[in-house]
Design a protein around this nucleic acid. Structure first.
Length: 587
RNA sequence: CGGGAUGUAGCGCAGCUUGGUUAGCGCGCCACGUUCGGGACGUGGAGGCCCCGGGUUCAAAUCCCGGCAUCCCGACCA
């Protein structure tokens, strides 16, 4: 049955809701697709739920096509499995926790690795049962510190999560590739444009990891692309190639200079350039000639702490996200005044390599650009003094390299001679090889051919289903409203009848009957309101094809509008149904 | 958890500085009439715990104190 606007549970808003910033949030609310129920928690209205179900259906079809088997876990989970993998504590405040009447601890599942692992352990015990891939489409709960951007980052959301189980690395590779291929098909069908980027495997552990990012300015993830070779990576995961050693035999011996009132890189550079005796032959001093040493405290999972110094070029900052990723599972804490007091050899603002390194109890790691033979200005470990012409390898060595400086547009590509461009995207999918972390923690083993026990290796694969709805809206909307791809649109055809007498409405009923006989879904604007209201609502709601029955009827035609292109075509009334049916079937 | 902003009708907002009619405007909603192809118009209506709790005052949406909530930026975040 056609959805009739006169009775459809829908109210479009003429004005933007005041709490919505990003286009997808604004338009999904204005178009009556979703309503906010609580911060980061949304109700789906009839049109929104139609779109959601289409997205979910496509995801499910592609998982099934790939031979993965669907299961369904509860969202309300007991504490014990999460205790076994220590995530009951590791997840921290992000976990929604609750108690039953006997005061037993429960949680609302933020993710389901434990349950899948235990289920397989429960039923399978032989290598002959593997490989196996299971998936579910489930509501997940995460008490995010700051939900934002509407449906894009909620506290309740639907995720398709899959897990593969294999007996060896070669099997895991095959399972990973099977999921990757299924994801390509899925996102293609959803009408999303996306990039596959190298990613950090994050807190989950594991090795290979790729993210599917839908590029849009409102995306929360930054990623780089190489314009030359196709390399793409999440900004967190970019690995800068170590610079080649430089010949520094011509560099004069390092010398300490008085540099009063230069606690920052900018003030230091200004002072260097004002001193004629320190002038460079080739060019003025720049921030990139200085070596900035940042000290932080690492807190390891066992509770112990460690001081870590990171040396980066002075024009760069340490990207805390990248640092966290590099030192995981340790956590990074800023160096406090108390920490400085406990280590008097560190002159705040003038920290140099002389006070760092294993012999001083502070592990010292360098950005790859600070390679052997390169020459720097850096702190002299005395308030108000810096060292000039300090050469790496000749004058000091560090304990290793670490690549955690911020990534910038135009940085060199790590895998070719090209340059990187920086962009933002929404993470719509993530695939990675988990390895044996969960299998070991929960003792998932199977018997091998020889009768011994082998630990299963796993992969983990996620698609944000509700997030994909918003990502599609984000990528396809225009100034007038939403603009759905045919694969997920709530209705195939939006029929608008205009005019004051019954003629156009009668004509619409006839056309709609034919369309429905042909299997198309229709939204029919049968309201007796002015034409402008209907046209604007049709644009806002975003069905891919809008059919107007009104003035054209005098010439015996229906007016067809392509929502995405804005193109208008007149089609003879007698041929409208077959024309539209062909259009929809062609995709 | 830091910084900023905001809470007044279903939605978007004004009023608060300088306390004082019956708290106002636009959209939406109801009734009647006129309109009828890009968010029409007229007339008449319905709809309010002015976020909550204290306080000051003859009198508080408005001033003071304390909460709570929401949004934005950052921190955080498979």
């Amino acid at each position: 049955m056609a959805l009739r606007m006169s009775t459809l549970f829908l109210r479009t808003l003429r004005e933007d809701p005041s709490d919505a910033e990003v286009p997808s949030h604004r338009l999904l609310v204005r178009g009556g697709y979703v309503r906010r129920a609580a911060p980061g928690i949304f109700s789906w209205l009839p049109l929104g739920w139609l779109v959601y179900r289409n997205v979910e259906r496509i995801v499910r079809e592609e998982m099934d096509r790939a031979g993965f088997q669907e299961v369904h876990f509860p969202a309300l989970l007991p504490r014990e499995p999460y205790e076994a993998t220590s995530r009951w504590t590791e997840y921290g405040d992000t976990l929604f926790r609750l108690r039953d009447r006997r005061n037993a601890d429960y949680l609302l599942g933020p993710t389901h690795e434990e349950l899948f692992t235990l289920l397989v352990k429960d039923l399978y015990s032989s290598y002959r049962d593997l490989p196996l891939s299971l998936y579910q489409i489930q509501t997940k709960y995460r008490d995010e510190a700051r939900p934002r951007a509407g449906v894009l980052r909620g506290r309740e959301f639907v995720m398709k999560d899959s897990y593969s189980f294999d007996i060896d690395d070669a099997g895991l590779d095959r399972s990973y590739e099977a999921h990757r291929a299924a994801y390509l098909r899925t996102f293609d069908r959803l009408g999303l444009s996306y990039e596959i980027v190298d990613a950090m495997s994050g807190a989950m552990g594991g090795s290979a990891s790729e993210e599917f990012l839908a590029p849009t300015p409102v995306g929360e993830d930054s990623f780089v692309r190489c314009t030359t070779c196709g390399y793409a990576a999440n900004a967190e995961a970019v690995q800068i190639a170590p610079a080649k050693p430089v010949d520094a035999t011509a560099v004069p011996a390092a010398h300490v200079e008085d540099t009063p009132d230069t606690p920052t890189i900018a003030t230091l550079v200004d002072l260097l350039n004002s001193r004629e005796d320190l002038a460079r032959d080739d060019r003025p001093w720049a921030a990139a000639d200085t070596l900035k040493n940042v000290v932080v405290t690492l807190r390891h999972p066992d509770g112990t702490t460690e001081s870590l110094a990171v040396g980066v070029p002075g024009d760069r900052d340490v990207d805390l996200k990248r640092l966290e990723a590099a030192v995981t599972p340790a956590e990074v804490e800023p160096f406090t005044d108390d920490d400085f007091a406990a280590r008097p050899q560190l002159a705040k603002g003038y920290i140099g390599p002389g006070a760092l390194g294993a012999e001083h109890g502070i592990r010292f790691l360098l950005d790859p650009r600070i390679s052997d033979g390169t020459r720097w200005v850096t702190g002299a470990d005395v308030h108000g003094r810096h060292v000039v012409d300090l050469v790496v390898g000749r004058d000091f060595t560090a304990d290793g390299t670490i690549d955690v400086a911020d990534i910038r547009d135009g940085d060199p590509c790590p895998s070719c001679d090209g340059t990187l461009t920086l962009a933002r995207g929404i993470e719509i999918g993530h695939i990675f090889k988990l390895g044996r972390r969960y299998a070991e923690a929960l003792d998932l083993t199977v018997q091998d051919e020889a009768g011994g026990q082998i630990t299963v290796t796993m992969g983990s694969y996620g698609i944000g289903v509700t997030r994909a709805v918003a990502a599609i809206a984000e990528q396809t909307h225009d100034d007038a409203g939403l603009c759905w791809p045919r694969s997920v649109t709530p209705v195939d055809i939006h029929v608008v009848a205009t005019g004051k007498d019954d003629t156009p409405f009668d004509a619409a009923e006839a056309v709609i009957g034919e369309l429905e006989d042909a299997g198309l879904s229709v939204l029919y604007d049968d309201r007796r309101v002015s034409a402008g209201v209907k046209f604007n609502d049709a644009d806002l709601l975003g069905a891919p094809t809008i059919v107007v029955l009104g003035r054209g009827l005098q010439r015996g035609v229906a007016e067809i509008k392509d929502r995405a292109t804005g193109d208008r075509t007149d089609i003879d009334l007698a041929e409208v149904a077959t024309y539209l049916t062909d259009l929809v079937r062609a995709g």
